[in-house]
Design a protein around this nucleic acid. Structure first.
Lengths: 145, 145
DNA sequence: TATTGTTATACTCTATAACTATA
DNA sequence: TATAGTTATAGAGTATAACAATA
């Protein structure tokens, strides 16, 4: 009987290699990509919420947003009702880059999967919903975005 | 039929959150931990080989090794037969820290897994060997360490 | 001349502490 | 006074280019 916790920890730690493997040149960094996914999926958010949702400090989020704004991927907008608040929105270019990246990485991941035998591929396919729930559990708790 | 490549890419990208979640304070960084695992599992290596195996540049490996040497986790040793070569070995402290970290992270991962229902846990357990082979595929090709 | 490793430099990502502006 | 965000500063991690030492 394998130690599932131990093995799974190793798999997740080694997954940085997988991410490197499927990454493409001129690519978005991982934090930038995760932030864009968030903004595109769930709409604009304030800096404070993004920091909490992505699990980084508020200054860390300000800095990530600043780099991405400089690169034309997001923009800062003011909030109608509270002048302290900054709303972060993806730009058209951010959308486009994210789509391109997703297509490239998905193709690379499929190629990697294709090197496994059919039984292994099936096992991973079967476990996908469970794995999604597992990573969702690890997401920073949402007290309402 | 789900798009396995797409979903699996998302799971791996979100896995950084899992790693954050199971990380403990005063912990080793991920690159440092991966390097220690390598050295403890497979024995001392030269800088060039470590760079290739871990998928970073040679200067990047020199720098990682220097930080870890400063922290007393590894040491540099000379090669008997080639004076250009630097052999990197884990120290006793490196061994001890790695063991401690592994125990902590495994416990945290088990706790996370315990929040899933039995079917999900079983699916992940079934897929573990396949997932291990998948991350091994993504490892930088070894031309002999 | 080729290989091994380091140094120099620059950038991203991240944190904590101190600050500004608004509520 | 409390909240939202930024600026200042520091350190890890990474890269490329230039260098030193050895083969």
């Amino acid at each position: 009987m394998v130690d599932v916790g131990s093995k799974l920890t190793e798999v997740f730690e080694q997954s940085v290699r997988v991410l490197r493997h499927v990454s493409t040149s001129g690519d978005l960094s991982l934090p930038a990509a995760l932030l864009l996914v968030r903004l595109v999926s769930d709409g604009p958010h304030r800096v404070t919420d993004l920091a909490r949702l992505e699990g980084v400090s508020q200054p860390g989020m300000t800095q990530l947003v600043s780099r991405m704004e400089r690169d034309g991927l997001v923009r800062r907008a003011t909030d109608e009702t509270d002048a302290r608040v900054v709303r972060i929105e993806p730009t058209r270019r951010g959308h486009a880059l994210l789509r391109r990246r997703h297509a490239q990485r998905t193709a690379a991941m499929r190629a990697l999967l294709g090197q496994l035998n059919a039984a292994d591929q099936a096992a991973i396919r079967e476990a996908l919903p469970a794995l999604e729930r597992l990573v969702d559990l690890a997401a920073v708790p949402t007290h309402g975005p």
